[in-house]
Design a protein around this nucleic acid. Structure first.
Length: 484
RNA sequence: CGGGGAGUAGCUCAGUCCGGCAGAGCACUGGCUUUGGGAGCCAGGGGCCGCGGGUUCAAAUCCCGCCUCCCCGACCA
């Protein structure tokens, strides 16, 4: 068991890599850019999946599964789509020793397999809307990879929907963006800015792309989820038409939206500190770990018995709890161990606690002014712990929001000031924009920062700068940052 | 895909320059003693030295090719 982590302030990337390894979230595989998601990391993903899946069901979606392989000709159907994805696709050319008649593309996303099939399912306005989701793996052969944040193969969900009108499709696109935002805030305790992507950052084949952008602890932005209004682009490419009440044949309007295992990386970099991972209770494999403390066999028996009572009280209160009764490790080692793994709350139960029929509760994350360590009677433990975990969940979001806001500068107009900001502390900078992609590109070349989003109304500043960084009149406010 | 660094036990690394028995700390197994913030002693187990080829009596060490990881750029969720 290794001891210290590299401090975030010294080398954030090293800190990130070490935490992934030491908290046993993932490890490398023999194939470039691919990772093994270890049980502890996978459990976090499962908790994410379960919350999201419930939300998708609650908004009327059904799960389905479409194949891993796309005929290459299908990917080629939508011009912009193929242009965007061709450079990063893996292609299967052989089956055993025999060369395939037509190469197969391993899906980088599933539009090209879903739409040909939906064109058979959709005939009438009565068939609409179609609201589908699938949980799947996809492959994108990226140049540079990092565990969770960008891997060659990753796990995600992709929603695919078909609608009769552009208004309905737009509404769906926005609805799912809102679902993502709710999930990120209420489950991950990760505040995000939502908004529209510029054309240069738009999904290949989409009319419009919306995104949720979080700000990590190193002040770089993370695109955490995207929702696309695909217009009729895929309907045209794959001839997906329905008959209206008037008997006309018209193309459907479609959407797609997705989040991936990248979220786990976002979770790590939103809350983690120099002692390790910090998990919000709602996504923690163990919300509570009980560490029994004893000096002799008599104490061992009574302490473990008390631990068992605490465990079953918490179970009944719906808390995910684990008793660390490993022999031969002293309590201090166990504390460090679970702190590194981000467990929100630790209960220490020793002879003194048994004596007073109480437990010692220690928080992993303590906001200013709160007590890190508190003794609580065994009576009423379940309800108190549930309450404490709920407030930890809220405090994490609050803390992350304050950090994000502290790293946000609004009303930046002066280009020199902006460059200084991006080369220095980083963070979100709200500026004007002239709307020109040449200007967007120049700022990117100069500063490595990009326009993250054209923010939704509630994230906009009271007053938007009248001028773009280039000096030209601004057509609206944008949020810029360096990004993952 | 370019530039730089690295790959030796599960982890962190020494050994490589100058070829000659495969090493340390932590982790792991067994025993005893410990246990309220990273325990101690004793005894053990664990290696295709990234992979393949070459040079040599002899290769972790020298040469060639490839793979993987990390950092920096161009591409992206």
């Amino acid at each position: 068991m290794a001891k210290g982590l590299t401090p975030q302030s010294e080398d954030f990337s090293a800190w990130y890599n070490e935490i992934v390894q030491q908290a046993e979230l993932a490890s490398h595989s023999p194939v470039r850019g691919c990772m093994v998601i270890r049980p502890y990391g996978y459990r976090i993903w499962e908790l994410m999946q379960s919350a999201l899946d419930d939300m998708f069901k609650a908004t009327g979606h059904q799960n389905a599964y479409f194949p891993l392989f796309l005929p290459k000709s299908a990917l080629d159907r939508e011009a912009e789509h193929v242009e965007g994805f061709a450079p990063e696709t893996a292609i299967v050319t052989h089956a055993g020793r025999a060369k395939l008649e037509e190469p197969l593309v391993v899906r980088p996303t599933s539009e090209a397999i879903i739409w040909p099939i939906l064109s058979d399912w959709i005939h009438s306005y009565r068939d609409l809307p179609v609201l589908l989701n699938q949980w799947a793996n996809v492959v994108r052969w990226e140049m540079r990879t990092r565990p969770f944040l960008r891997t060659t193969e990753f796990l995600w969900q992709e929603g695919h929907t078909a609608h009769a009108t552009t208004e309905e499709a737009e509404e769906e696109t926005r609805r799912m963006l809102g679902v993502y935002r709710t999930f990120m805030e209420d489950w991950m305790a990760m505040p995000v800015i939502t908004g529209l992507k510029t054309d240069s950052e738009r999904f290949a084949g989409a009319l419009r792309t919306y995104a949720c952008e979080g700000l990590m602890k190193d002040n770089k932005a993370l695109q955490a989820g995207t929702s696309h209004h695909l217009g009729q682009n895929f309907a045209r490419a794959f001839d997906v038409r329905y008959q209206t009440e008037d008997g006309e044949h018209v193309y459907v309007w479609s959407t797609s939206w997705g989040v991936s295992t990248r979220l786990v990386g976002g979770l790590i970099m939103t809350h983690g500190d120099d002692d390790g991972l910090i998990l919000p209770p709602k996504l923690a494999p163990h919300e509570v770990v009980i560490v029994p403390i004893w000096r002799n066999d008599d104490q061992r028996a009574t302490v473990l018995e008390a631990g068992e009572r605490a465990r079953s009280a918490l179970n009944e209160a719906g808390v995910r709890v684990h008793v660390d009764d490993r022999e031969g490790l002293n309590p201090g080692s166990k504390y460090y161990d679970w702190e590194r793994r981000g467990v929100p709350l630790r209960l220490e139960i020793g002879p003194r606690d048994v004596e007073s029929d109480s437990v010692m509760a220690v928080r992993r994350f303590t906001p200013e002014g709160a007590d890190r360590k508190v003794s609580h009677p065994m009576a009423g433990l379940g309800a108190w712990i549930r309450e404490t975990l709920d407030s930890v969940q809220d405090e994490l979001l609050e803390g992350a929001r304050r950090r994000r806001d502290d790293a946000t500068v609004r009303g930046v107009e002066d280009y020199a000031e902006f460059q200084e900001l991006m080369h220095g502390s980083g963070g979100f900078a709200y500026t004007g924009w002239c709307g020109e992609s040449d200007c967007e590109q120049k700022v990117k070349d100069d500063t490595k920062s990009t326009i993250r989003v054209i923010p939704d109304e509630e994230f906009q500043s009271p007053e938007s700068p009248p001028r773009c960084l280039c000096g030209a009149p601004s057509i609206g406010e944008v949020v810029r940052a360096k990004a993952y």
